[in-house]
């Protein structure tokens, strides 16, 4: 699905990613954990195509395409989805109007027909139920006046609507209470198929009780320094990151 090789990225001349390697296959869920400042959000931003970051080295292959050559919108149209850590409020733009535009531009890109108003509304009803998002929120301005939990649910709702190949959840759990966390995780689990993949970026192990990863990676100092089965997350929860830092720094 995605193959990241020796990725180096910097912002304002400061190198954040320093040779990151990651391979995710269809049907898999990968968790990326790591201490603050390790480069977790930078990885998400670089994959989504934020232009502030400069890629100095490395490659990203996304389903046979050179991801780094694609614009942000084309990445999304090819099936990459980023659930934002801090979803943006867009006053005046209704969620519905936004999603219909989005869905239709993606369809247009693929040479498919526009979705009919009836099918679209049916899809909205079905997918908003998945994350228990009040139908009223769906017609309000994008994220405006939403609570933290509602914003994150809205991200998963959008993910459900767009049906991406690869979803990257950037700290989707941060700031969520346990109920919202369960709803969000449930939504993600229901959307999982053998054809898509998920990268869960998180600071806390708790989310991984609900979204069970196939592989857990530790990102530290711009690189994946350790990968292991889901039990690695528990170990990190228990022991913190210092032992990994020590291990890496000793090398």
């Amino acid at each position: 699905m995605i193959s990241i090789k020796n990725l180096h990225a910097s912002i304002d001349g400061k190198e954040i990613l320093k040779g990151l390697n990651l391979e995710v296959k269809a049907g898999e869920v990968h968790a990326i954990m790591g201490p603050n400042g390790a480069g977790k959000s930078t990885l998400a931003s670089v994959l989504a195509g934020r232009e502030e970051y400069e890629i100095t080295e490395g490659s990203v292959d996304f389903d046979g395409q050179d991801l780094l050559e694609l614009s942000t919108e084309d990445r999304a149209r090819e099936g990459l989805f980023l659930a934002f850590q801090y979803p943006i409020e867009i006053p005046g733009v209704s969620n519905i109007n936004f999603l219909r535009t989005s869905l239709n531009e993606i369809r247009d890109y693929k040479g498919e027909e526009q979705i009919s108003a009836k099918d679209f509304m049916a899809l909205v009803r079905e997918k908003s139920a998945l994350v228990e998002l009040d139908a009223k929120l769906a017609s309000r301005s994008v994220n405006e006046g939403f609570s933290g939990g509602e914003k994150k649910r809205n991200e998963i709702f959008q993910m459900a609507m767009l049906n991406p190949k690869l979803s990257i959840l950037d700290e989707t759990d941060s700031g969520l209470d346990i109920d919202a966390l369960r709803i969000v995780a449930n939504g993600v689990n229901k959307l999982k198929t053998a054809e898509n993949a998920t990268i869960v970026i998180t600071h806390y192990q708790r989310l991984l009780d609900y979204i069970v990863p196939d592989v857990v990676h530790v990102l530290y100092n711009g690189k994946i320094v350790k990968s292991g089965p889901k039990e690695l997350a528990l170990e990190l929860e228990e022991k913190g990151y210092d032992w990994i830092k020590a291990e890496v720094d000793a090398q």
């Binding site: 942000t72 990445r75 989005s102």
Partner: peptide, 16 residues
């Protein structure tokens, strides 16, 4: 225009 919002919309497949 809020460039963060423009990016957000683009990240959902909407052209700039």
């Amino acid at each position: 225009l809020d460039e963060e919002a423009v990016f957000y919309l683009r990240a959902r497949g909407i052209s700039e």
